[in-house]
């Protein structure tokens, strides 16, 4: 049964579930967009800098859209939700908060392009699957947002897939680096599919497909790609550093949030 905003506001249980899911979606994009913008000016070549920053910008746009849906549901002001909530309140997958490499974006950023490619590719595919599922979400405003996101996501996915196959096929040092990046990403990949403690509720309300369905769809889409680059993926993925959907996070998130909210928090009441 589809729910409009008005319907959702009337049904408390449904309302809470919609908010829960939207936090997961918004926080995922918000933090990954940040990790992407840290790469600005540091990508392997200028063309990639332009393309990657365009992707990060789209991703921030998606986060803004999801925070806006939260605001509409009465969860709070969109900017406040993005800039003030502490690490423990965030619902993003831990994989997405992980630093890009050694150093900070301001000084000595020794970032790992292999990790960037693998994380972004695996995420873009997982997001694509979620967005496909959300197009049929019972929450109508979210289903409409999913259509918009889907179009941009198509290019993100294509972009990262190209990098992934190119570097995997390059052999030598590139292959070695890519394989170690894959290992790191797989260790926390399951966090992307997790819907947290309230997962069963979300699925019950037909807000999104179940974790198992999402994961299986990912494996299904990715298998031919892995096969084409001669790589065997393990049967099980990890959540080594915790389940972000339940508020478990690493120190990487805390420092990122300090930066993201630095100016906003100088004076949250001011208009910027």
């Amino acid at each position: 049964m589809t729910h409009t905003l008005v319907d959702a506001l009337k049904d408390e249980c449904y309302h809470n579930s919609a908010i829960e899911l939207l936090f997961q979606l918004a926080d995922d994009d918000f933090i990954l967009s940040y990790r992407g913008s840290e790469w600005l000016g540091l990508a392997p070549h200028i063309e990639e800098d332009v393309a990657f920053s365009s992707i990060s910008q789209d991703t921030m746009g998606h986060a803004a859209m999801f925070y806006q849906l939260l605001q509409d549901l009465g969860a709070g002001d969109a900017d406040e939700l993005a800039h003030v909530r502490s690490a423990g309140e965030r619902k993003n997958a831990v994989l997405l908060e992980k630093v890009n490499g050694l150093g900070t974006y301001l000084a000595e950023p020794h970032y790992d392009w292999a990790f960037a490619v693998v994380r972004n590719y695996f995420y873009a595919q997982a997001k694509k699957i979620k967005i496909e599922s959300l197009k049929n979400s019972s929450y109508q405003p979210l289903a409409e947002a999913a259509v918009k996101v889907s179009m941009e996501l198509y290019y993100h996915l294509l972009h990262w897939k190209t990098w992934f196959t190119q570097l995997m096929d390059a052999g030598g040092e590139a292959r070695t680096r890519m394989e170690s990046a894959i290992k790191i990403v797989l260790d926390d990949l399951d966090g992307l599919f997790s819907l947290g403690n309230s997962g069963p509720e979300l699925t019950k309300h037909s807000l999104i497909d179940s974790e198992d369905t999402l994961r299986a769809a990912w494996v299904n889409r990715m298998s031919p790609v892995f096969e084409s680059v001669n790589f065997n993926i393990p049967e099980k993925f990890g959540m080594k550093n915790g389940n972000g959907r339940n508020g478990e996070h690493t120190v990487d998130l805390k420092s990122a949030l300090d930066i993201l909210g630095e100016v906003y928090n100088l004076d949250p009441a001011a208009s910027w």
């Binding site: 940040y34 913008s37 840290e38 600005l40 000016g41 200028i46 800098d49 332009v50 920053s53 365009s54 990060s56 910008q57 921030m60 746009g61 986060a63 803004a64 925070y67 969109a78 900017d79 993005a82 800039h83 974006y105 990122a256 930066i259 993201l260 630095e262 100016v263 906003y264 100088l266 910027w272």
Partner: peptide, 20 residues
């Protein structure tokens, strides 16, 4: 990343991308 609102974040991201 420090831009003080979602709108400003999007604005400055677009600008810096243009410069590249």
């Amino acid at each position: 990343p420090k831009a003080p609102s979602l709108r400003r974040k999007l604005g400055i991201m677009a600008k810096v991308q243009d410069e590249m």
